[in-house]
Design a protein around this nucleic acid. Structure first.
Length: 238
DNA sequence: GGTACCTGGAT
DNA sequence: CATCCAGGTAC
């Protein structure tokens, strides 16, 4: 495991390697490539990759995208499948099973797939409810306590690495050029940012290439250019 | 084999 | 800004 100093050294080595071919095609290639370079085994453990140093995040420079803080499915169990069946729509490119992608805010209802209907998130007591204005209602919610646990597992600190990129698909390459350790993000602040619509809840249910349903996980996300709103402190590592 | 996590986007 | 989307694994 790294210390802050050995991590800084390794990041410098990686920077000096220049452009590095992606280890996986598609959006997730940058994260997989960086994990490999740092010797982190791919995992789906709900915890910080770098232990006390924080959770590892990476993104491409000059591109606007959202950072996933953590994923947490709503309750009750398997309700994502019900949401998919109830509100999903057929992917016109595949014309098979339903998919459901929707970025939900705390401030107002969104719209889903060109319909007049959508979702918003609303705090009621100890829960966050996924509310909808669709004619058909489904009850889905998160316990604040569950979110607090997920939050505290991953987000006390965060290692944020940026790369210049060129090429596309399997031929994409990354030059990791900038890195920070961010800290000082409280759950109270997290709740506040959800209420203000800064942190959004992203429902991401798509399909595998063979047409099977692929739930990428319901994510709590923020635009990468607003990540500074979460953390009080920042240390430059590269 | 479905569910719930991991890693990230384009327009 | 919002709407809609991507490739992986453990169990």
């Amino acid at each position: 495991m790294y210390t802050l100093e050995t991590l800084k050294q390794r990041l410098k080595e990686i920077e000096q390697m220049g452009y590095i071919p992606t280890h996986r095609s598609g959006p997730t290639g940058i994260g997989k490539t960086l994990e490999d370079l740092l010797g982190i085994n791919e995992n789906n453990i709900a915890g910080a990759d770098l232990g006390d140093l924080g959770e590892l995040k990476s993104c491409r420079n000059n591109q606007t995208s959202m950072i996933t803080l953590f994923t947490k499915s709503p309750k009750p169990p398997r309700v994502n499948g019900i949401l998919l069946n109830t509100y999903g729509y057929v992917d016109p490119r595949r014309d098979s099973r339903k998919i459901l992608h929707s970025t939900v805010s705390g401030t107002s209802y969104n719209t889903v797939n060109g319909t007049p209907y959508g979702f918003k998130v609303e705090v009621v007591g100890d829960r966050l409810y996924l509310k909808s204005n669709f004619p058909q209602q489904v009850t889905a919610y998160w316990e604040k306590e569950d979110l607090k646990k997920a939050f505290e597992k991953k987000l006390p600190k965060l290692i944020f690495v940026k790369a210049n990129c060129k090429g596309t698909g399997r031929n994409e390459e990354f030059h990791f050029v900038e890195a920070y350790q961010l800290s000082g993000f409280s759950f109270k602040n997290f709740e506040e940012l959800i209420n203000r619509g800064i942190i959004k809840i992203d429902i991401r249910i798509g399909q595998y290439p063979d047409g099977r349903t692929h739930d990428h996980g319901t994510a709590f996300r923020i635009m990468n250019n607003q990540i500074h709103l979460c953390f009080a402190h920042r240390i430059k590592l590269l």
